[in-house]
Amino acid sequence: MSQPAVSLRHVSKHYLRGGQVIDVLKDIDFDIAPGDFLALMGPSGSGKSTLLNLIAGIDQPSGGQIIVDQVDIATLAEAELADWRASHVGFIFQFYNLMPVLNAQENVELPLMLTTLNARQRKEHASLALEMVGLSDRSSHYPNELSGGQQQRVAIARALVSDPSLIVADEPTGDLDRKSAGEILDLLGQLNTELGKTIIMVTHDGRAAERAHAIRHLEKGELSALEMLQPAKV
């Protein structure tokens, strides 16, 4: 029996807006098994991004437990959480969020700055990651010299370079044309099947969600039942 990679227990999140309490998430309760590939869907404002942020440890829940690899990250202090993110989570954003002043190689190296690796080792790891996303020949290019799809691939390389077990992706294809989106989704599928990464992806694109093993829908802060899909065939 393997432990779930992520388990959420009674997680809730509310904001105060103009003196009013707005419930974004209400009593969310679910597990994700290691090596799973889950798509979170839902209309705008449903709370899907908030849920992803909570799991990734960049936002704090108002109540409940979020256990990732047997650690309740809801109890971690700010600094501990930062260290935890550096070693456990890889991020993929809709707008790539690459540092414009760093080239591809340097962007990928960024998470390794927080490890004990030396410069040579960092370079090796980053090159390897860039090779995996098929951008070895672009390592010295700056983000503004790359297409959207290429930038997102650099971002994926950055997400996997520190070898985290969990990868979170927030609308990774939201800003891309269909062809590039397809390539990015292929890459994510590869990470899942070949490297065994647990992936949680927020999307509102049904085509993208179909690549996952399972889909969960969020509606007004509440979770629908799990919808199992066949693992996508590459």
């Binding site: 930062a82 993110r85 998470p111």
Partner: peptide, 12 residues
């Protein structure tokens, strides 16, 4: 946004 990204990546 860049600084937030760095923070998300685990920079203090």
């Amino acid at each position: 946004a860049e600084y937030a990204t760095l923070k998300a990546l685990g920079f203090s």
